[in-house]
Design a protein around this nucleic acid. Sequence first.
DNA 1: AAAATTACCAACCGCCATACG
DNA 2: CCGTATGGCGGTTGGTAATTT
Length: 381
Amino acid sequence: MKERERRVLLTSLPSISTEVLQKLTFDLKVNAPLAVPFDYSRLPTQVPAYIEVNGSLISIYERKTRVLLKLANKAVGKEEEEINKPISIYIQWSSGSTYNNMGRPPCCDKLGVKKGPWTPEEDITLVSYIQDHGPGNWRAIPTTTGLKRCSKSCRLRWTNYLRPGIKRGNFTDYEEKLIIHLQALLGNRWAAIAAYLPERTDNDIKNYWNTHLRKKISKAQELSNYESNSKGQWERRLQTDINMAKQALSDALSLEKPICDSTESKNSSGYSSAIYASSAENISKLLKGWVKKCSVSNTSDQACSASSTGGTTTTTSFATNLLPEASETSLFYGESKPSIEVSTPFSMLETWLFDESTVDQQLGQDDLLDVSLVDTYHDLF
DNA sequence: AAAATTACCAACCGCCATACG
DNA sequence: CCGTATGGCGGTTGGTAATTT
């Protein structure tokens, strides 16, 4: 590190949030012991490349606790067994430094708009503004704050990284299964999926899908190809369910079409709402709530399409949200964004994915979702 | 030990829907 | 009604770290 313009000791390592950044800005050079181990996943990723442990300067590039602790121990010459003793940790960076060199480098500087990784100073500026004015009105941020970033970049930085409540680090088994379920249900509609994982951003979910789950599933599919018997059984069952679901949905929609017609606009395939569900009963049950909601509102367009514009932080009931979402995209047949096609052999996935005991266990310790959602989730599968 | 490959993920791009004048 | 600006979303990129060869 060339300079130590900023230096702060955090008594804990919180997620990157308003108060942290404020602390970094206004409450520098505080000295107090930090108990370790701490949850390094709560440290903002790729922040300050250097950390000071009991007077020794070390660099960090990883956000995993064990890595940091290893480095910390190395720096203070302790063995891992002793890491539970309180030590002092400083986090620091130079004012001109960037978080790291990851991500796409600035490719063009048109009109003085900066691109590429955000600096800590930019983050502070952005968060300070949002603290005062709240999120939204992104176009005002560059002009008001002097940030040389486009409004789009500001919004992205906030929603994907800076806003409080973002959970980072490894996905739990429960989250993983939920993502797979929702992906099968909703397709690659990451924002909609993220609505059911409030602590995860759509970008994170998308990345996780692309880097982990997609491969996992395709591997499982390959293996499943060897299990022709169980495969046939499962597919027949699924096919039956889908046919029944389609029929139920078709009936219901034909009754309510004048009210909720707008939701059909995207569906020319004939399967406006092929829902992934275990029975037509579930479909009907969910549909009932949705149709009711549509009927209550005179402005049917709003009622029926409201959830499709849902952001990542809004929490709506599964039943009211699910169907409008699902109705826009055919999930198994003939759509431009097929997810796990109906032809997917699920036999291998089935035991792993539908292992409800795991979900139940996780639910007890990991209160990610409200009960109603999980109930419905269980109903569905 | 070095080279090659893979994994990761922040941040970009382009498209679309909506708001606004 | 029309054109433009903006917000939101999904797909993609590409530099570095980690892992494998």
